[in-house]
């Protein structure tokens, strides 16, 4: 167990170096990447925020509260980019569907360690996270939110719960790629995109059944809206426990089904595998 942690930290170091080299290989790429990150940050926040300004708030949240929610959304989205964007680790159905899992299974490392390390992009993948932190701090100051340790701890808990709900769901749907490699190759990106599209909206004004649907069944509301409500002290009692529990539940189910899918993969392999590692 301790050896795995050691390996994970060592690999994070290796991937960090690789990422830094990639980002600084050329001034043009570097500037374009930073500019692209800045623009992504701006565009993901600006649309809904401008609406909140025009309408004097959205879904029961004031303009500043909406800004806080959007900042939090970018933190979660940024954490996804930071840990799971590289090498299609978040879009795992692509690697399963293309038969590329074979490359991981022959490595002398547990699959979990590989999955937790291969997506790590601390330099090229941290732009959205940094932007999210900046927007969240600005909104929190404007709202006079307490920057106490327990509150910051709660913020971290909410952010990582939302992240693992997102990743867990992507892995859950990706299990189908073990059984239908071609048909499900892109299934994780469909789920990720759908969650991302709805995740940045305040759902406060929606009817109760739709809110429940978007929190429990298709948990787009767990990416930003519900955590923001909890952090703003606007959610019902006990909601703070819901998010980590939901994250555990989704990741647990995904892990069990993933193991089952791996057994199937072990028996049948992938007919789409090519020695060059690309899909057929």
């Amino acid at each position: 167990m301790a050896g795995n942690w050691k390996a994970l930290f060592r690999l994070w170091g290796v991937y960090a170096r690789l990422d830094l080299h990639w980002l600084t290989q050329d001034t043009k790429y570097c500037v374009l990447t930073i500019f692209s990150d800045l623009l992504s940050n701006l565009s993901s926040v600006l649309g809904v925020f401008l609406l909140a300004v025009r309408f004097g708030g959205v879904g029961g949240l004031s303009a500043d509260e909406v800004l806080f929610m959007l900042g939090f959304y970018n933190i979660v989205s940024g954490l996804f980019n930071l840990f799971f964007l590289g090498n299609n680790v978040g879009n795992i159905s692509r690697r399963i569907g293309r038969g590329q899992l074979d490359h991981m299974l022959i490595q002398p490392l547990p699959l979990t360690v590989q999955l937790l390390s291969e997506g790590f992009l601390p330099f090229s993948g941290s732009g959205v996270l940094l932007g999210g932190i900046a927007v969240t701090v600005i909104a929190a100051v404007r709202l006079s939110l307490p920057f106490s340790l327990p509150w910051l701890g709660l913020l971290l808990l909410m952010a990582f719960s939302a992240l693992f709900i997102w990743v867990g769901l992507a892995y859950l749907v990706s299990v189908s790629a073990f059984y239908h490699p071609a048909g499900s190759e892109e299934i994780s990106s469909v789920a990720i995109d759908a969650l991302a599209t709805l995740g940045g909206y305040p759902l406060g004004g929606l009817s109760g059944w739709l809110q429940a649907l978007l929190v429990v069944v298709f948990p787009a509301g767990c990416l930003a809206w519900l955590p923001a409500m909890i952090l703003l002290g606007r959610s019902p009692f006990g909601a703070a426990a819901l998010l980590p529990l939901l994250a555990l539940f989704i990741c647990g189910i995904a892990a069990v089904l993933f193991q089952k899918g791996m057994k199937h993969y072990g028996k049948f392999g992938s007919q789409r595998y090519r020695s060059m590692g690309h899909r057929s």
């Binding site: 609406l51 879904g59 239908h180 190759e185 789920a191 298709f218």
Partner: peptide
């Protein structure tokens, strides 16, 4: 349709869900 029925159903289901949620949000606003 290369990625099969599952991908097609998933993609269009998500599109409908997104559209319905957006329509609801505008109604609320």
């Amino acid at each position: 349709g290369y990625f099969g029925a599952m991908n097609v159903v998933g993609t269009y289901l998500m599109k409908w869900l997104r559209l319905l949620a957006l329509l609801m949000i505008w109604k609320v606003l």
